[in-house]
Amino acid sequence: MRQAPAVFRMLAPLIATGVLLVGCGPSPAPITTPSGSSAPGPAQTAAADKPLRVAPAPSSLNLPVGSLYKNPANNRSELVLADVRHTAVLIGDSQSMPKDSWPQQGITAMGYKLHVVGMGGTGYVATNGKTGNYIDALQRGDWVLPFGDPPLIVIQGGGNDATQRATDAQITSNAERLLAALKKRYPGATLAMIGTLAKGVGNGGGRRTEIDALLGRIAAKHAIPFVSAGDWLTRYDAIGDLQDGVHLKASGHAKLGTALAREFTALGLMARPDTAEPAK
């Protein structure tokens, strides 16, 4: 009987320690990210998934139409338009640049207002010495895109890439870069592409017709609406409407503008009137 208290006195500290360990349980090891830092909790993760910068609605800023705005969402200067929600953006070369060009006529015939950027002598790879190709010019800010959310962005070109002998690999690489940049910058916009104006395979279309087909394959890969123009000069009897072998007279622009509007309409790209007030 005298030994029990002695044994108990010996075991008591161990028993007490065991009770504490069982009652509290082991402390969980911290979860770490690949960099070694502690992983955020659920609330922190949800917050981290949200974009750090969100572009404000144009209408909420009361910016003067025609002014440049430094968009905090992408850190780029963008042009404030009067009605960006109903304005299509056209990126192109000298086929698109003249006022009332066939690409401009085709797009406006569907009910859109228009914002045009680009320059003659440029393309997916081609440059004219004054500005870069499509993707480089846009990334450098040579051409200013609109602030807000345009519903449609159309890319036209390829003729100067043929003239400057750009390879399929170069055109594909830059087209992929351009499409990725536009999707990231305007995730809500529909992208569409117009191929390279030419005479067609059997009528001397040559490299221009080849590039038209290449652009069609790129568009198909991204499920982007595409209008092939690689035989339009022949198909629409517009060779006689050329003023210099490459560029069209007003009669040719009107002829092909009608054809483009018909093709785009068939693809479901018509403007959709929206009378709702813009989001505040």
Rank of each mutant, 00 (worst) to 15 (best):
Y112E: 10
T33D: 15
P51N: 01
Q105I: 14
V19I: 14
S35E: 14
V65T: 13
G66E: 00
L20H: 05
S37M: 13
Q44C: 05
A73Y: 03
K50N: 10
G120I: 05
V80E: 12
P56G: 03
C24T: 15
Y112Q: 08
V22H: 13
N75G: 10
M110Q: 03
L114E: 09
Q44V: 08
S60D: 13
V89K: 06
G36W: 08
L20G: 15
L81N: 14
D83L: 04
I31G: 12
A57W: 05
D93N: 07
L21S: 09
Q95W: 08
A82K: 12
L63P: 07
H115I: 07
P64S: 01
S77Q: 10
G23P: 10
L81T: 15
S96L: 05
S60N: 13
V22E: 08
G111R: 07
S37F: 12
D93T: 00
Q44D: 15
P64A: 09
L90N: 02
S94D: 13
T32C: 14
S27N: 11
T87A: 07
T87N: 09
A57I: 01
N71L: 00
A109K: 15
P30A: 07
R76Y: 04
A29P: 01
P30K: 09
Q105P: 04
L68R: 10
S94Y: 01
A39S: 13
S38A: 15
D49C: 02
V80A: 08
A39V: 10
T33A: 15
T122E: 06
G36T: 02
R76K: 14
H86F: 03
A88Y: 03
V19E: 02
T45R: 13
S38C: 05
G25L: 11
S96F: 00
T108M: 12
R53M: 11
S38H: 07
G111Q: 10
T87V: 09
N74A: 12
H115G: 02
A29N: 11
P42R: 01
S77H: 11
I91D: 03
Q105C: 02
I107F: 03
G118Y: 06
M119C: 04
M110K: 07
S67H: 00
Y69T: 01
P98T: 02
T45K: 12
G36P: 09
C24E: 11
T45Q: 14
P26D: 04
G106A: 05
I31W: 06
S94W: 00
V116S: 11
A48K: 10
G121A: 12
N62Y: 02
P51L: 00
G121N: 11
I107S: 06
H115F: 05
K99N: 10
G25I: 04
C24R: 10
M110G: 08
V22Q: 13
A82L: 09
I31V: 14
P40Q: 07
P28Y: 00
A47S: 04
Y112P: 10
R85T: 04
A39R: 08
L52Y: 04
A55D: 06
Y112A: 10
P56K: 00
S60W: 05
P26S: 13
L63Q: 05
D100L: 02
C24Y: 15
R85A: 15
D83F: 08
L81G: 14
T32H: 11
T122L: 00
A109Q: 11
L68G: 08
V116I: 09
P72L: 09
P56F: 05
K99F: 07
A82Y: 06
L52A: 14
